[in-house]
Simulated scan of single mutants.
Amino acid sequence: MSIKNHKNIATFMHLGVFSKYFIPFGNYIVPILLWSTNKDKSDFIDDHGKEAINFQLSILLYTVILGIFSFPFFIFHVFGDATI
């Protein structure tokens, strides 16, 4: 396979994140599928596939942590001050 083809596959791994707007969880599925089918062909593809998946999992983790920390503030705001 040519170098240009490797770069195209790596680009589609990173651009596959935008499939979340059309396919539920597409931002995880598309990069994982592209990476798992092409990771043995090149170290370049392997590295970029790992980076794309790692970034998406990191964003998920940060979102969950922020959600956990913001939940008490949201509940306090909805129910307001309980003092009479």
Rank of each mutant, 00 (worst) to 15 (best):
K50H: 02
A82Y: 08
Q56H: 10
D43W: 02
P31E: 02
K50F: 10
G49K: 06
L66M: 09
V30I: 15
I53Q: 04
S2F: 04
T83V: 13
K50I: 14
I75P: 01
G80L: 07
F69W: 06
N38G: 04
S70K: 07
F55S: 05
I45F: 04
D40Y: 14
S19H: 05
K41H: 11
A10P: 02
E51K: 15
K39Q: 05
G26W: 10
F44M: 12
F44K: 09
D40F: 08
F22D: 02
K4F: 10
S58R: 15
I59Q: 01
W35P: 01
I3H: 11
G16E: 03
Y21N: 12
D46P: 01
K41T: 07
K4D: 05
F71Q: 03
I32V: 12
S70M: 12
F79Q: 10
M1Q: 02
S2D: 07
T83P: 01
Y28I: 15
I23Q: 00
S58V: 15
A82S: 11
P72F: 07
K50M: 09
F73H: 07
K41R: 11
L61G: 08
G80Q: 08
P72Y: 02
I68D: 01
A52W: 03
N27V: 03
N27M: 07
I45C: 04
S36P: 00
Y62W: 15
T63V: 12
I59H: 00
N5T: 13
H77Q: 11
I32Q: 00
I84P: 13
Y62E: 01
L34M: 09
F69P: 00
K7P: 00
M1N: 02
F71M: 10
F22H: 06
D40N: 15
F79I: 10
L60P: 00
F12I: 06
V17F: 11
D47S: 13
L33M: 07
H14E: 09
K7C: 03
A82R: 06
I32M: 12
F71A: 15
Q56P: 04
N38I: 02
S19N: 03
K7S: 05
T11Y: 13
F44Y: 15
I23V: 13
F18C: 10
N8M: 10
M13H: 05
Q56G: 12
A82T: 11
G80C: 07
V17I: 14
I32C: 04
G80E: 08
L57K: 10
I9E: 00
D81G: 06
D81S: 10
G26V: 14
N27P: 01
G80M: 08
D47V: 08
F55T: 11
G16I: 08
M13P: 03
F76V: 06
S70Q: 06
K50G: 09
T83G: 12
S19I: 14
K39L: 02
F74I: 15
H14W: 13
G26S: 08
T37P: 00
L66T: 05
K39G: 03
M1Y: 06
H6Y: 13
P24F: 14
P72G: 04
P31G: 04
D43S: 11
H77C: 09
L57T: 11
L60W: 01
K39S: 05
F76A: 12
D43V: 14
